[in-house]
């Protein structure tokens, strides 16, 4: 699946395109190796059982400047559990899931990996492991060309984040380079579950309407009714991270069994998928409430 060299920016990965083909995509995120390798495998597989259409796998970096306290905690637990880029690739190979997997990490880890300079060795290894794309929160579009070229060479997608403040030339530069889907940041600030999802989402989706790439909204989605409203508002997918990481963290604190945590991850996934589907029906019937 990794040998295609496709230059079409609408998407290199057929699997990612497929994830958005049948209704709104549910895109959960977990930090790989949180709190340990084996539990993490089960958690990711539980997400697929819960209805994930695509999964973002966080490769933990020691300085996660875009993350709030919840995901920082996950990163610390995963690093303390011995997670490394090599282990991360093994993890992807060990996973028994059929949905496309996207690696979310920071640029230094991509840049440093392998014997030769630049992002190409990391991308080649990622393709070999079966990953379909990347999200790199600290890599601006202006610096992304080497990674973009490597992704095209190995048939992977490169997802960019669009903030509520992104517009004009910056938005064009990002949309020139994005493929797979665009990650629409629902509000300013770092990641973290919020009780409400802001109006900034609607404005962001409006600005992106003319671009022909799936729009997945993230930051602050933690319940089915959030998912419903976001999808009703025009999102092609919902990205959920902190609400899931909270469950893992709570499991660590309360010493719950891996199976119990996995069950809760599966259950909240079903709730989010159901919310997204309600939102999708509301959109098709023209009733955004």
């Amino acid at each position: 699946m990794s040998n295609r060299a496709v230059s079409d920016r609408s998407g290199n990965s057929e699997a990612i395109a497929q994830a958005f083909a049948d209704g709104p995509a549910y895109i959960p995120y977990l930090a790989v190796g949180d709190p340990d390798y084996e539990s993490s495998l089960e958690y990711v597989e539980a997400l697929e059982r819960g209805g994930a259409d695509l999964i973002e796998l966080g490769l933990p970096f020691s300085e996660p400047i875009a993350e709030g306290p919840t995901i920082q905690g996950a990163v610390v637990r995963a690093l303390e559990g011995g997670m490394t880029p090599d282990r991360f690739f093994e993890f992807v190979e060990d996973l028994d899931v059929d949905v496309p997997l996207v690696c979310m990490t920071y640029y230094n880890l991509i840049y440093q990996w392998g014997e030769t300079e630049g992002p190409r060795p990391f991308v080649e290894r990622a393709a070999e492991a079966g990953l379909e794309g990347f999200v790199v929160p600290d890599l601006p579009a202006e610096e992304a060309d080497p990674l973009r070229e490597a992704c095209d060479e190995f048939g992977l997608d490169l997802v960019f984040i669009v903030a509520p403040t992104t517009e004009g030339d910056r938005l064009d530069r990002i949309m020139d380079r994005v493929s797979g889907y665009v990650y629409v940041q629902a509000r300013l600030g770092t990641t973290g579950a919020q009780d409400d999802v802001s109006d900034q989402t609607a404005a962001s989706l409006d600005r992106l309407r003319e671009y022909d790439v799936p729009k997945a909204v993230g930051f602050g989605i933690s319940a089915g009714d959030h998912a419903e409203r976001i999808v009703a508002g025009g999102a092609d997918g919902i990205i959920v991270g902190s609400a899931l990481v909270d469950i893992v963290a709570e499991g660590v604190e309360s010493n719950r069994s891996t199976a119990a945590v996995a069950d809760r991850l599966e259950a909240i996934s079903r709730e989010l998928v159901a919310g997204a589907e309600r939102g999708s029906r509301a959109r098709s019937t023209g009733d955004p409430s």
């Binding site: 875009a66 929160p137 890599l139 601006p140 202006e142 669009v162 903030a163 403040t165 992104t166």
Partner: peptide, 20 residues
């Protein structure tokens, strides 16, 4: 490229929300 290069060093490697 982003601005502020000193030879190969420098740049603006920040989350998109900080760019504006």
């Amino acid at each position: 490229e982003t601005g502020g290069k000193f030879g190969r060093y420098g740049g603006q490697y920040v989350p998109e929300a900080l760019m504006p």
